[in-house]
């Protein structure tokens, strides 16, 4: 893959052109398009990708894209994005054919659901798994590590410094948040710090 991967521990979650520019102005070289219409900000996103910013898309939540091969081809070939997130293993399998990095989203709502989610992690292993809500990670990390060694991202409900720090301290490589304040605070945090 020629597109860039992640190196920072904070992954800004953006939802429109404003938040996109705020993250870029802070010097971020990685973004998660978490929701909102991807098509409404496709120009600035493509521009950022051309300049080497790693862009990941949550396919389960963004608007304007179908969950199909044509959409994946658009993200990979036309836009040069780095990867996609989804709860759907078959969609991630398709995405890997387009040389997108794949991030398996797993809902950590209760033990039963977590187990089902971890069992859905397919082969080849994804680039990462994204646990939602991230605030559950300190509780569920031991269970995750019994099942897989792939990098763990935390997404969802992260609004305070303490929450983000606890997620990273529990062993997550990356934490995602939509809070500008946290983007400022964790700007220099590298993966594995």
């Amino acid at each position: 893959m020629r597109t860039p991967g992640l190196s920072g521990a904070m992954l800004p979650a953006i939802r429109d052109s404003n938040t996109l520019h705020q993250a870029l102005d802070l010097g971020y070289r990685q973004l998660l398009v978490e929701r909102g219409s991807l098509l409404a900000m496709v120009g600035p996103l493509a521009g950022a990708a051309r300049q080497g910013v790693a862009i990941f898309v949550n396919l389960d939540a963004v608007e304007g894209l179908a969950a199909d091969s044509a959409a994946l081809a658009f993200l990979a070939t036309d836009l040069g994005f780095s990867g996609v997130l989804s709860v759907k293993p078959h969609l991630l399998r398709d995405a890997s054919r387009f040389r997108l990095r794949t991030v398996q989203r797993i809902h950590a709502l209760d033990s039963t659901g977590l187990e089902t989610g971890l069992n859905s992690v397919g082969q080849p292993a994804p680039y990462a798994i994204a646990i939602a809500p991230a605030v559950a990670i300190p509780q569920v990390m031991p269970t995750i590590r019994e099942s897989t060694n792939v990098p763990v991202w935390g997404t969802g409900f992260i609004t305070t410094t303490d929450q983000a720090a606890a997620v990273l301290a529990a062993g997550a490589d990356v934490v995602s948040s939509a809070e500008l304040k946290l983007w400022r605070e964790f700007r220099g945090a590298r993966i594995g710090d």
């Binding site: 950590a108 939602a132 809500p133 969802g156």
Partner: peptide, 8 residues
């Protein structure tokens, strides 16, 4: 209520 993010 399956609360995996604040949008949910």
């Amino acid at each position: 209520l399956l609360l995996y993010d604040d949008l949910g």
